[in-house]
Design a protein around this nucleic acid. Structure first.
Lengths: 196, 196
DNA sequence: TGCGACGCTAAGCAAGCGCTTAGTAGCGAG
DNA sequence: CTCGCTACTAAGCGCTTGCTTAGCGTCGCA
């Protein structure tokens, strides 16, 4: 939306993201957000028309970042096997390092206003099509042993998205290790011949 | 909790489960629940002390059912390969046919009171240990090619749990088909030799 | 020096929240 | 017939909610 948010706007967006991620949209009050950003409750409305527009801004930014990262990963590799591995690695890396944002992105969709929900749904469709496309490419050339591309897309994406739910930064597992392991799992699920 | 809930209690629990699943715990009001159960707002408190105790009753029942189904599936099979396949099939079947319950079970944990949360966390730990155990058994006998049992447990469970998020009963996919496909994916992830 | 624009706060409004209170209809036991 | 219990409702209490209003200090610019 806003291409260059001010420092105060960023503080509000970060505070809202953390609160939404921890307590959910409906579990968070505008006073929570204002306090976490070090402002009075009314200051929220200087920068955002409603509490829901804060959620939309966060959700939109998160989805656009995921889509961009997936496109770059796909473009930087040649074969479906390499592409899938690189895509899942970046996707999962994002879901761990920014797991609070990822929780808002994936679990607060129901709180969006209908027109905002439609915008986000379109982005989610694009993300899914990117992964599905690579799977279909590999299946077409028999590089993947993948009988059901649609269902396997859901299975792989489900494994990735759910990382945002269970990941805990206090755990010993490094994001890179989780990302690598997820990529290996995705290649096995796709039936990649070199997927060990 | 209550071993034999009355008809009114069941209606309240069902209404609360549907509302929590659709709008989340904090997005649901006690008036929503009462109206869906065909009662006045005060009637809720005849059967449940608080709104949160409704959530706990639903969450507890859901977790206990999952645990029971997984134990039965594991006991009815002999080899780790058969056990894992059967467990994932029942687990995912539950997450599709009762996906509203599964959403409450998996995504409303943060709304539980601390002591209730501890009870639920213990059940979740048991569920995870069941799957991890089968994976470890298969890895020990080289029936599975699974280098990292802990991480693979999370990956498999993530794929299963996320079904509750994306499953839509209006879609064409039958629960049984999703369950079968998930089981096949899990066997590939585990590195089962006969997992094709 | 004056002045409007901007970023912010103190105070508060109407609505909605979880939950309580007081009372009632219906029913089985004596 | 009456008693006491259970399941329920109408009304409402105190508080919190998202958001608004009125006003204040501080800038850049004439």
């Amino acid at each position: 939306m806003d291409p260059s948010p001010s420092a105060a706007q960023r503080r509000l967006l970060d505070a809202a993201r953390d609160a939404f991620g921890a307590k959910g949209f409906h579990g968070t009050t505008t006073r929570d957000i204002a306090a976490a950003a070090g402002m009075s409750p009314a200051a929220v409305y200087v920068h955002h028309r409603t509490k829901e527009s804060l959620l939309f801004a966060i959700s939109l930014g998160g989805h656009e970042a995921s889509l961009r990262a997936l496109r770059e990963a796909a473009a930087a590799a040649d074969t479906p096997t390499e592409q899938l591995g690189a895509m899942i690695r970046t996707f999962v890396l994002g879901h761990t390092t920014d797991h609070t944002l990822a929780r808002v992105v994936n679990y607060e969709l129901a709180a969006l206003a209908p027109e905002h929900r439609a915008t986000i749904d379109a982005l989610r469709h694009d993300i899914q099509q990117l992964i599905r496309g690579v799977l279909a490419d590999g299946a077409a050339t028999d590089e993947f042993d993948c009988a059901d591309v649609g269902m396997t897309t859901n299975a792989i994406m489900g494994m990735c998205i759910d990382v945002a739910r269970w990941y805990d930064e206090r755990d010993a597992w490094a994001p890179e290790r989780i990302a690598d392991h997820s990529a290996r799992m995705a290649l096995r699920m796709a039936g990649a011949s070199s997927g060990r």
